[in-house]
Design a protein around this nucleic acid. Structure first.
Lengths: 253, 253
DNA sequence: AACAATGGGTGTAATTGGTACACAATTGTA
DNA sequence: TACAATTGTGTACCAATTACACCCATTGTT
């Protein structure tokens, strides 16, 4: 818990800098070697875990705000964040409304105001992204999707909506550029898809289909190391990848 | 142009009722007999046309706000509105910032504040929806997609983003329940798809595919009237339609 | 009453795409 | 050098999509 003075100081500062009533929450999915995780924070002042979130500065574009928030709260930078949904239930931050209700008047406590939150999500290789907690957080870490803690506020809804969006997007857009290393093998890419979808895919059909999209370059090298035939390395064909992002993978009609 | 007193009165009222910094804009696509239109307003006080928009009340869920805004500004009610994007550029309502800048101080003019707008879109049968302008609008009417006026603010961006979203959605979700009359013929439904996509589709393949989705009921009646064989009437199978909305039409992976 | 014009109902062959499965090749280790 | 593990590649089968043609019901015209 913060003291009355601390809260009032933080609140006054926030009112100066940030737009009232608007917040951003980020769902950052991390993937490495067949494991999928989400980036989460444990607050110093509250029990329970939350998604990295924050506010929009008075003259800041919202996409810029999302990246700044993620960077300052978690140390993770240069990530392709995408807005996916707005969460606007009037009581979605009831927990924050009540927490300091008898300490500081609601109007004077910026954090107890009603906030409509814009959800952003991203995919990164969690091996290359080392989470660092900010001054408000005790812990900032990757949590396994199969072992999630209880969430504060409506962050569980935000998380599940992001996961649904990710799965839906997988069926009509390419995924993986922000998530795989520059060079990767087909089985590695397949693991990514299997992890996101939560089911096994046929190795040979996956390869044919993936190559059919025309967004991969086959490299001459192979990745040695296992007690088995060395798989070829691939990289994304960035130009075609971007085009596929825009137009979708299936024509539809 | 409003007078100083009028503006100050409206502004003071708005500050009481609405959340600051958050607005909603609605893109309502109307369809009837092969014609596609958008619902637009011409303001009494400004040149140029805009989408019906408004603000969120202090304790109102945003989806409820979207419906209230559409109803009060255009008279159109009971529409399935869906959020599709947030528009958050810091200067997106520059026009409104400047308009009354020398008349009323920026802080005292609610409408000159920065607003982050949540875009909602909907599809309706424009024959059944009669637009009625509110007190701020001179005209409220359906505008043909091929004959659009110059838009105020960033409303052209909001409109084109909505249209792109609609076209994308067409490829993986059913569309038409909110747009077609209860009973309709297959050629009528096809016209809807052709109008949204802006291209011709094969009559026979369209029918087979549409029936394959399992979201239509074939009715025993036919629609007489033309100098040709009377086409069968169909209605949507609401249960399957809802399921298809949730799960998408194509499995993907 | 016969006929032409309009536009809807239905079927089918060819192609494409997706699924299921099998066998050969390479690498490291016992 | 034999074996286990895992990748590369091919193919037969089924489903979906595409392209295309003929017939039918209704109406207005002669």
């Amino acid at each position: 818990m913060l003291t009355k003075e601390e809260l009032e100081e933080y609140s006054a500062e926030a009112i100066e800098i940030y737009l009232d009533h608007i917040s951003i929450d980020c769902v950052v999915f991390g993937f490495h070697e067949g494991q999928m995780k989400v980036l989460m924070l444990k607050s110093k002042n509250e029990d329970g875990w939350q998604l990295p979130g924050g506010f929009v500065q008075k003259r800041e574009p919202i996409d810029v705000a999302a990246n700044r928030i993620l960077a300052t709260r978690t140390g993770i930078d240069e990530v392709f964040l995408q807005q996916f949904h707005v969460f606007g239930a009037p009581d979605r931050n009831r927990q924050h409304n009540e927490m300091y209700a008898d300490l500081v008047a609601k109007e004077k406590n910026f954090f107890a105001h009603r906030f409509i939150s814009i959800g952003y999500y991203a995919l990164v290789d969690f091996f290359n992204a080392i989470p660092t907690p900010d001054e408000f957080s005790e812990i900032c870490t990757w949590r396994d999707l199969n072992d999630l803690p209880p969430f504060l506020l409506d962050h569980e809804l935000i998380f599940t909506t992001a996961l649904d969006t990710l799965r839906l997007q997988l069926s009509y857009q390419p995924i993986g550029y922000n998530l795989m290393p520059k060079e990767f093998t087909m089985p590695e890419l397949q693991k990514l898809y299997e992890t996101i979808l939560g089911k096994k895919l046929d190795r040979r059909n996956f390869q044919r289909r993936m190559l059919g999209f025309g967004i991969l370059n086959k490299l001459p090298q192979t990745r040695k190391g296992g007690a088995h035939k060395a798989p070829y390395l691939y990289s994304f064909d960035l130009e075609n990848y971007q085009a596929a992002l825009k137009e979708g993978l299936k024509s539809g009609w």
